[in-house]
Each structure stands twice: as structure tokens, then as C-alpha cells.
Write a protein that binds this DNA or RNA. Structure first.
Lengths: 116, 116
DNA sequence: GACATATATAGCAAAAACGCTATATTGGTG
DNA sequence: CACCAATATAGCGTTTTTGCTATATATGTC
């Protein structure tokens, strides 16, 4: 017994990337960078319906992006690992580069002329 | 006319993350960090069939992860943007943390006991 | 043009992701 | 226990992804 799962870094990392590869989920984890938030907070902040919000959160928990902690009737979700935090830092520094004009959106999506 | 597409950073970033969210594709882009390579090189290095290799490469080109350059009968693919390079650097530093033992795979995937 | 090599595409079936509505569960309070 | 607020799940139709086999296209050489 005592089965040991063998999984490469690429497997782990690609699962994480895939789970983050959704605009609303990315918004959610960015929001959670500031600290844990309960479902209602997240729902209001991101502007999604209750079921969709819950589904994204569950999905991310299943994919090891988030963990949760119950407090009475509320569920608080928070970032689950340092890999996630590192990735978000990286995304953030890219965002800053974009905003400051050091990098153009066209560098990433050539067909797009302008963006927010 | 002169339509201007409006797209947020989250949209751009999540598309990139999603496109990178596949183990073989992640292997491919990591391989391409060293510089451009043609389809045959990539196929042999990663160990995929020719059609699958081509499909992944096309997919990533469509999603602005890669660009290509033809040289005779060969097609050379290479990383398309600084965002990709930054992300890969980030992944790499996480990989190093994992390898050096500073970070445990269990920090990312709690149910996994051990990994390569 | 015939042929070889390198790469791309078509077509298909299985699986997964997505968004939605309706309904269920869980915990707290009286 | 009844009831409310917070959150999760079921079920469903649509779309996207994935991997595969077979076939097509493009380029170079003779």
C-alpha cells in the first residue's frame, strides 16, 4: 500500500495555470491577494451570481489554488500556496509594465490596438 | 471605422495562462526558452507525434504564445512576448524552489506525497 | 514533373469547461 | 423545531479541448 503518486513539475504547474486561465477567476485571486474573503464579499466585488461565484471558488479549491476556512455560516477563501502568490506577483509586475507603457498589449496580442 | 477592441488585462492574461495550462505545451515553451527550434526538433525533444506537436504549436501561435519563421522546408517557432518570458522565469524560479526543497509539492498539491 | 521531407489540416469521438436555473445543505437564532 | 442567511450542488445544454488517424500542402532536389 502507501501508494506514491508520481507527478512532474509540469503537471502541477500546468494544472495551476489552467485553473487560473479564466478572467473571472483571475479577478478573484487578485482580489484575494489582499487577504481572505468570504463568498458574499467576492460575489459583490467581482459582480457574479452566487452559484457562479461558488462554482469558481470550488473549482479553484479542487485545483489547489484556494483553501477555505469556515466561520459560522460564512466560508472564507484564501490563496493556497506560494506558487500562486509568486505567479500573481509576476502577473502584477507584467500589469505594471503594461500600465507604465514599458510593454505594449500589442506585444502580447498583436491584433489588439488599444486596451484599458 | 478603425474599430478599437477593448480588452482588460485580465482577459489578456487569462488567455495566456490558459494556453500555457497544458503539461506538454509547458514543456515546449520551456524548451523554447533557449531559443527558436523547428517542429522536428520539438517533436523529438518532447516525444510527441508529429500532428500533436504541430497542433500544440499552432494553438500556441493562435494564442500569441509563439511566433514562427520559415526557413526552407522548416518552420522555426519561438516565444512571442515578454509576458511569456516573464511567466516562464517565474515558473522556473518556483521549480527551483521546489527542487531545492524550499517549497514542497504538498504546498501546492496537498494530496501528493512525493514527486520527481 | 516525380519524388522526398517537413509540416499542417480535416474529421471525429470522448472528455472537460461554462453558464444557467432550480434546489439542497449548513449553521445560527428564537 | 421553524425559519433565515450563506453557501453548495444537481442537472442540463452548449462550447471548447484533446488526441487520434488519415490526408493534404509546401518546399527542395533531381
Amino acid at each position: 500500500m502507501n501508494e506514491v503518486k508520481h507527478i512532474s513539475f509540469f503537471e502541477v504547474a500546468s494544472k495551476v495555470l489552467k485553473a487560473l486561465g479564466h478572467p473571472e477567476r483571475l479577478r478573484i485571486v487578485e482580489y484575494l491577494q489582499a487577504g481572505e474573503r468570504n463568498v458574499g464579499d467576492i460575489q459583490r466585488e467581482i459582480g457574479l451570481s452566487q452559484p457562479i461565484t461558488s462554482q469558481h471558488l470550488r473549482y479553484m479549491q479542487r485545483h489547489n489554488i484556494l483553501t477555505s476556512r469556515r466561520e459560522g455560516t460564512r466560508l472564507y477563501y484564501f490563496l493556497a500556496s506560494d506558487l500562486i502568490r509568486k505567479l500573481l506577483d509576476c502577473m502584477h509586475s507584467c500589469k505594471v509594465s503594461l500600465d507604465s507603457g514599458d510593454m505594449q498589449v500589442g506585444d502580447i496580442f498583436p491584433e489588439i490596438k488599444r486596451s484599458i
